[in-house]
């Protein structure tokens, strides 16, 4: 296309960073700055074991963040990812511990349960026209309730399935490279993020999700079966929440049915900090992962510095507002 001239004055200028990319860059700089700050001022922060701890702490929020990134780019929201994670962990517990099935079936059951429940959310949103906020608020409670019902409100332990440890705390990679002790849960997060990023940017599914979030009516008038893609988006979100459920329960070696509430807000915060627009049509998985790291570095760093734990929550709140302000500021400028 050498002879196709660039859309001059009015068009987006290729070669310049887009707003989303710019914001991602800002988030990355913030992350590096935080790492630098804590390395300088917090003793014992920049140690190998602490870094592993940070990564470990990021895994669950990172995966949930990726899950909710799909939905937010499509112009929706999912408040149920936290309790969905718990429900899928309970399902894994039932399949593995109560029914004594092999590990792969447990993994499959957890992801399938999440995807199914996500599809149900998607159905109520797409077909019954219930606003996503309300529909997933309902699903949040349904998932929480079901997790308690199925588990009879008691933790389910995975003592009979020692290989369950493989999903999070074990570091398989250190068997090959002994110096790299990255736990499997973190590796799973990175794999999920990379695959999700490819799906969102390169595949037809991703294109549809961006189209939905950018202008749903335009997508509909273009002959796209909007409802079907919307249901799929929520199903993907639910399925990935299932992966988070596996990671968290593997790390705790148990499915804790009371867990999960509040995780959705951290996940949404990671997405927003990463530069994904809550109004849809714009966003990246990389941004979300960076956002999740910013949150756990803050938590960890403040703790290492001896700051009262609860301040972290306050700081996170401030960061969310600042992140959205930067988003608005950058868009105004462009």
């Amino acid at each position: 296309m050498t002879d196709t001239t660039v859309d001059g004055a009015q068009g987006a200028k290729p070669g310049f960073l887009t707003t989303a990319a710019l914001q991602k860059a800002v988030a990355f700089v913030v992350l590096v700055a935080l790492l630098g700050f804590f390395s300088l001022f917090a003793p014992n922060f920049a140690t190998g074991s602490n870094m592993v701890g940070i990564m470990q702490a990021t895994a669950v929020n990172g995966v949930l963040g990726v899950a909710v990134t799909f939905v937010i780019i499509s112009g929706g929201i999912d408040l149920s990812v936290g309790t969905m994670m718990t429900l899928t962990a309970v399902v894994a517990g039932i399949v593995l511990t109560n029914l004594g099935m092999p590990l792969p079936l447990g993994i499959l059951a957890a992801i399938a349960a999440g995807a199914f429940m996500g599809a149900v959310s998607g159905f109520t949103i797409a077909e019954l026209k219930i606003p996503p906020f309300i529909a997933t608020l309902g699903m949040m409670q349904i998932a929480r309730g079901l997790a308690l019902v199925f588990s009879e409100a008691k933790p389910i332990y995975f003592n009979d399935t020692p290989s369950y440890q493989l999903l999070s705390p074990v570091s398989s990679i250190s068997a090959i490279f002994p110096s790299i002790e990255i736990p499997n849960g973190v590796m799973i997060m990175f794999v999920v993020a990379i695959l999700s990023s490819i799906v969102l940017t390169r595949t037809i599914v991703g294109r549809m999700i961006f189209a939905l979030g950018s202008n749903e009516e335009a997508a509909r008038l273009s002959g796209i079966k909007v409802n079907r893609w919307k249901i799929l988006t929520y199903a993907i979100c639910g399925g990935i929440s299932g992966i988070a459920g596996l990671i968290v329960s593997s790390r705790l070696n148990s499915a804790q049915p009371a867990l999960g509430l509040g995780y959705e807000l951290d996940a949404i915060a990671a997405v927003v900090i990463g530069g994904t627009s809550l109004s849809g049509g714009r966003g990246t998985v990389t941004g979300t992962i960076i956002g999740a790291f910013i949150m756990s570095v803050l938590t960890n760093g403040l703790r290492v510095m001896g700051v009262q734990e609860e301040w972290k929550i306050v700081v996170t709140g401030v960061i969310i507002i600042v992140a959205v302000f930067i988003d608005i500021f950058l868009r105004k400028k462009s």
Binding site: T203, I204, A211, S214, A218, A219, G223
Partner: peptide
């Protein structure tokens, strides 16, 4: 009725993207 965040080409062929790689990739 256009999707502002997508490119001109992406808008034109939305829903009918040429595919490769088992019909998954655009």
């Amino acid at each position: 009725f256009l999707m502002n965040h997508l490119s001109a080409a992406q808008n034109i062929f939305i829903g009918r993207e040429p595919r490769r790689g088992f019909g998954i990739f655009v």
